[in-house]
């Protein structure tokens, strides 16, 4: 199984190492990046991050679900969900293929 879980602290460290801002400011900026993405999605807008992937907001209509424990039918209200579509480059990286050579 996968060994480690990366958190905000690791992302801050990466920004600190690569960009040379203070640790405090790196943390603030990681937060700001996530906030900008979140705000945009909350407005229902798609966020496309090239070579990474895109976040899309989808609307779901009402449907009938079932409580798996009791077997009772319950209406599931209409809602918005967010999905992540990984880019081809990301998929390749995860399969250990070299960066750059994108087919499709």
């Amino acid at each position: 199984m996968s060994a480690k879980t990366i958190t905000r602290a690791d992302l801050c460290e990466a920004v600190y190492q690569k960009v040379g801002l203070s640790r405090t400011e790196s943390a603030t900026l990681v937060e700001l990046v996530l906030k900008e993405i979140t705000d945009c999605l909350e407005r229902g807008e798609t966020v496309k991050l090239s070579s990474f992937g895109s976040f899309v907001v989808r609307k779901k209509g009402q449907r009938i679900g079932r409580n798996p424990k009791t077997g009772k039918e319950v209406p599931i209200s209409p809602r918005r969900v967010m999905v992540f579509k990984p880019s081809a480059i990301l998929k390749q990286r995860i399969n250990g293929e070299a960066e750059g050579a994108v087919q499709e």
Binding site: S2, A3, K4, T5, I6, T7, R8, D10, L11, L34, I37, T38, L90, R93, I94, G96
Partner: peptide, 13 residues
């Protein structure tokens, strides 16, 4: 991280 097979958990996101 994902290329190493690790998980990335961003609370609230």
């Amino acid at each position: 991280a994902m290329a190493r097979g690790d998980r990335v958990e961003l609370r609230g996101f």
